[in-house]
């Protein structure tokens, strides 16, 4: 459905992304992982149409995204940027209503109102419906923005670090909601994520980037291995298979040449 071909991006002389090729599986959660500065967010923002590539193209159903009018693209792909700075006095349901803008152009129909209510209910935010966004906690605010993105009813959702600055409970809630979006509604979710354990336990597909190039692109089972992750992050990884899933332990690296350091 959405794919990139030979995508390149440079800022001044620095190449941020060099000739990226990838197709993203439909109805799956795909996590973009990799170290800081690997080009994950740049790739996502180019797919969202927020950054223009230097060369190469993003394709949606085989059509180059540059050829799709912005207003039409908003009905195909919804994007949520990381921790939107917000100084507006809006209620949660008013924010979610903005998700209907690509359809309603500001005049909400009965169907739009139904979708808004459904999106709020999908994330169990009914009790916050009339709360002001600027009075919510970071986690609740992120949920409200996610509800807006869900109300956009696009086949593809792009999320840039949706778990940024969230506590564990809200992070789990968001990831479970994304899982349900895929499983129940068949939507395609592509997200940039830093917590490798969330990526390992919730996604179907992994695209790993390192220094502006795609390092790995494949199912999550093949991605979460000690060799691949150690190589990607240049850290010592231990993968532990527990009853609930796989845990990547990288917190206390074992120094291989400890003796040499001492000497």
């Amino acid at each position: 459905m959405i794919s990139v071909e030979n995508l390149c991006k440079e800022y001044a002389d620095k190449t941020v992304l060099a000739s990226a090729n990838a197709a993203f599986p439909v109805g799956c959660i795909t996590s973009l992982i990799g170290p800081n500065g690997a080009g994950k967010s740049t790739l996502l923002m180019m797919m969202a149409g927020l950054i223009k590539p230097v060369s190469g193209s993003v394709f949606f159903d085989g059509v180059p995204v540059g050829d799709i009018p912005v207003a039409d693209y908003a009905r195909k792909v919804a994007t949520l940027r990381q921790s939107p700075g917000f100084n507006l006095r809006l209620k949660v349901h008013e924010l979610v209503a903005f998700g209907r803008f690509p359809y309603s152009k500001g005049a909400l129909s009965a169907h739009d109102r139904q979708v808004i209510d459904d999106s709020i209910a999908f994330l169990s935010l009914e009790h916050l419906r009339n709360a002001f966004i600027d009075e919510l906690s970071g986690g609740q605010r992120q949920m409200a923005f996610l509800a807006m993105t869900i109300a956009q009813q696009t086949p593809v959702l792009l999320l840039d670090e949706p778990l940024n600055n969230l506590d564990m409970k809200h992070a789990v809630q968001i990831m479970q909601a994304l899982r349900r979006l895929c499983d129940e509604q068949g939507r395609t979710v592509i997200l940039v994520i830093h917590d490798i354990n969330f990526a390992a336990n919730y996604s179907d597909h992994i695209v790993a980037l390192k220094s502006g190039a795609i390092h790995f692109n494949g199912p999550v089972y093949d991605a979460v291995t000690e060799t691949l992750l150690s190589d990607l992050y240049e850290l010592d990884f231990e993968i532990i298979n527990s009853k609930r899933g796989r845990v990547c332990d990288y917190f206390t690296p074992v120094l291989e040449n400890e003796n040499e350091v001492d000497g």
Binding site: A48, L50, D72, A74, A78, F98, F101, Q152
Partner: peptide
């Protein structure tokens, strides 16, 4: 960015 994502030709 949110405006572009919602289909406004910013």
């Amino acid at each position: 960015e949110q405006a572009v994502s919602l289909g406004v030709n910013e």
